[in-house]
Design a protein around this nucleic acid. Structure first.
Length: 781
DNA sequence: GAGCACTGC
């Protein structure tokens, strides 16, 4: 399913996003879909008949009985099927029609998706097929937007994370008779966690049916997990080979592997794998003869060869980042000049997450006017977005991935080799509409050396919030007894998370959740953001901190033009920077973001208008989303009993605000050295201010800064930085004072309020502790 | 002098 907005399908995002992408076409698409959904007129019943015929024409329809039988007989059904075979839209409907969600039992069918937009467009499609209004029998729930009726909705599409949240109020998921985890092979943190908890739930509620749907062949790992069979990855070798073959012509046979387990009293057996036939075309795969030195250059070569030699059909190139995409497109554009007479032109289009709505729309217009389209994409085109008309794929074999390093506590963005599964997924993109061709810019032996599967998110991220959430769900021993899906996260990753929980005051020394920790787990925020919100209640400045958190949760509101950025005489670039200066607080990013937010919502200034953003070179969509996030966070505060506190502002007492920031971000402090570089207080690492920071080209008077996070690319960069003024420094104790903080409207008025902030009452815990305590579970210093 | 793959609560 596409993450991008596709004309003629659903509109993306929340109502706030909708403002950002609003267009007449989008509105009419929305109305069209609603018209299909309503069942009153005779034309719509004709529509519905043809939709029913379409449903029956899907290849999965032949498997209907088989699927229903499997779900009835087995507690866990792992479904392997190609993307586009209709499993996501059809299986919940088959279950509904077979009586799995009878109204009298008040239980429904829920299907989880990795992305919110999938939920919107799929539920819209399914409600049309069911001939009902979206939100009645078929509904969805995504962050910031719910569209269902607890009494009437029988099929619900939700994001993985949304269902995980539901566990907090309904630990046995008693509202559902069937839970389908879709796209489980992506191994997202929330989908893995859901599967882990569903296994526990099934022990208490064997009547619950679990469907795990996966496009590739992690099937055995998932099934073994549910069957308590060991899975060490040895079997995965075979899996990898299958992944490689996945792009080859699909077999027409459907295989069902039954696993005999003891039946419980309901005659329900434990699990089964079902393979569904996909609707794809053969893809011919070619490898590089020898390792390429410069894959961007090689991709240009490959595109050029394909363009000159191959029949019509679009080309999709996989590179790792925007910079490479620009370079590749530039090189191809240069080549176009030397295109032989009579050759068709190559229409070059970038595909990455930073595209404007207009650029996104162009991607789905596959009617290239006399020529061939060449889409140069990041990994977004691998799973998140399905592009039409692709017949040729060029794959560099690499991906940019975020990795968390528990030793330094920082995230890195690394360029790494992809997995075999990923390679199969990429080349499979060429076989969606007709037979295709994939050029892999690496050798066959390199391919064989690739890991069969991409490392699950849980194995490469900071698990602080995961640990917190699981603790609040009553999962106590995360290290020894907890059943992770293979492969499990390293103990180092887990101990790092436990430590951070302790440092943030979310756990006590026996790894018990503190009252603060419980609240942090309930808030839909990263722990450090949750901490910031909790502190804001203490410092009585939640009004401002809510805005800061909302702004930190969206992409940068400052629109800085892309091209010729380095040319100091470029007018657009300098005027964008000048625009930003209007909001810049010299203390740094947190207060600058607050300035932007306050100006945007101020009825006298920005009036939440698009025009204001245009005039001031701000991203309207980001700000609209921040407003929506802030509202939701305010709702959460109300739920925590802080309705009054949520409205309390610092009323010009910036000191409270600064104190609050330091009291939450004290972990992330750095000191500027003589050479202009910063050293982290925690680990003495060399750090740099991120180029997106308003402090990037400034040298503040004070030597100390605090920051939101560190991301390592070529250097270690601090993001979202605020200057703090140091007054004294003692061994192990770090006092900071703020000065010269301008609050609203960028007045940059010096404030003499000198305030001390503080560290937690105890020093940072030792770096190691026992992981197998005999008396207490978890953390022992 | 220089950057941000992609989701999600």
């Amino acid at each position: 399913m596409s993450t991008f907005w596709k004309p003629g399908t659903a509109q993306p995002g929340s109502s706030a996003d909708r403002i950002g992408t609003s267009s007449e076409e989008a509105e009419s698409a929305f109305q069209h879909a609603s018209a299909i959904s309503s069942s009153s007129s005779s034309s719509s019943s004709r529509e519905r008949r043809s939709l029913q015929e379409e449903r029956k024409a899907l290849p999965i329809y032949e498997q209907r009985e088989r699927i229903l039988y499997a779900v009835q007989r087995y507690g866990v059904v792992v479904i392997v099927g190609q993307t586009g075979c209709g499993k996501t839209t059809q299986i919940p409907q088959y279950l509904l029609e077979a009586g799995w969600a009878p109204t009298h039992r008040a239980q429904s069918i829920v299907c989880t998706q990795p992305r919110r937009l999938s939920c919107l467009s799929i539920s819209m499609r399914v409600s049309a097929e069911q001939g009902c209004i979206l939100g009645s029998q078929v509904g969805y729930a995504v962050p910031f937007e719910r569209h269902y009726d607890a009494r009437t909705t029988r099929i619900k599409y939700v994001t993985h994370g949304t269902l995980f949240r539901e566990l907090m109020s309904d630990p046995l998921l008693s509202a559902y008779s069937v839970v389908m985890i879709d796209e489980a092979h992506e191994r997202n943190a929330f989908s893995d966690l859901l599967l882990i908890l569903l296994k526990k739930i099934r022990r208490k509620r064997p009547s619950l049916r679990v469907i795990v749907s996966s496009a590739t062949i992690d099937a055995q790992a998932f099934l073994n997990f549910f069957l308590d069979k060991p899975y060490t990855g040895q079997e995965r070798q075979a899996g990898g080979a299958q992944a490689a073959a996945a792009a080859a012509p699909t077999t027409t046979t459907t295989t069902a592997t039954s696993t005999t387990q003891r039946s419980n009293n309901e005659e329900v057996e434990d699990g089964i794998i079902l393979s569904l036939q996909g609707r794809t075309f053969p893809v011919e795969i070619a490898y590089a003869q020898e390792a390429v030195e410069d894959y961007v250059k090689a991709s240009v070569e490959a595109v050029w060869q394909l363009h000159l030699a191959e029949a019509k059909g679009d080309i999709l190139v996989f590179l790792t980042g925007k910079e490479e995409i620009d370079a590749c497109m530039q090189a191809l554009a240069d080549r176009q000049i030397s295109l032989p007479q009579g050759s068709l032109p190559l229409h070059l289009l970038p595909v990455h997450a930073g595209l404007s709505t207009q650029e996104q729309m162009a991607l789905f217009d596959s009617t290239a006017r006399g020529g061939r389209r060449c889409l140069v994409a990041t990994n977004i085109a691998e799973a998140s977005v399905t592009l039409p008309g692709i017949r040729y794929v060029v794959d560099c074999g690499l991906v940019k991935m975020r990795l968390f390093d528990p030793e330094s506590g920082t995230d890195s963005l690394c360029i790494l080799p992809i997995s075999q599964a990923s390679a199969a997924q990429r080349s499979g993109r060429a076989g969606r509409t007709s037979a295709g061709k994939a050029l892999r810019l690496y050798t066959r032996s390199t391919f064989r050396s690739l890991a069969p599967h991409t490392s699950p998110e849980l194995c490469r991220s900071d698990l602080t919030s995961v640990v917190l959430q699981l603790k609040s769900l009553g999962v106590d021993d995360l290290v020894r007894k907890f059943e992770w899906i293979w492969p499990a996260p390293s103990t180092r990753l887990l101990s790092c998370a436990l430590q951070r929980c302790a440092v943030l005051g979310a756990m006590d020394e026996w790894a018990r959740l503190t009252p603060d920790g419980q609240k942090m787990a309930e808030l839909p925020l990263e722990p450090i953001m949750g901490k910031l919100l909790l502190q804001s209640v203490r410092f009585q400045c939640s009004k401002e901190i809510l805005s800061v958190i909302a702004m930190l949760s969206v992409s940068s509101p400052f629109v800085i033009p892309d091209e010729k950025r380095y040319a100091s005489n470029d007018a657009a670039y300098t005027s964008a920077l000048l625009s930003r200066d209007k909001f810049t607080a010299e203390e740094g990013d947190h207060l600058s973001l607050l300035n932007v937010y306050d100006a945007f919502v101020d009825p006298q200034v920005g009036a939440s208008s698009r025009g204001f953003c245009k005039r001031n070179k701000l991203a309207f969509a980001a700000l609209a989303r921040a407003v929506s996030i802030r509202q939701q966070l305010q709702g959460w505060m109300k739920r925590l009993g802080w309705e009054r506190e949520a409205r309390m502002g610092c009323e010009g007492d910036e000191g409270r605000l600064r104190k609050c920031l330091v009291s939450a971000l004290f972990e992330n402090a750095a000191r500027r050295m003589e050479d202009g570089e910063y050293r982290s207080i925690r680990a003495g690492q060399t750090l740099h201010i991120h180029p997106s920071s308003v402090l990037f080209d400034r040298i503040p008077k004070s030597k100390y800064v605090i920051f939101q996070e560190v991301v390592q690319t070529n250097k270690r960069y601090m993001r979202d930085v605020t200057v703090v003024e140091e007054v004294s420094e003692k061994k192990g104790v770090f006092f900071v004072f703020f000065a010269h903080i301008a609050l609203r409207k960028n007045q940059n008025k010096a404030s003499d309020a000198m305030l001390n902030a503080f560290l937690p009452p105890r020093p940072l815990p030792a770096t190691s502790f026992s992981l197998s305590p005999s008396t207490h579970k978890g953390l022992v210093t």
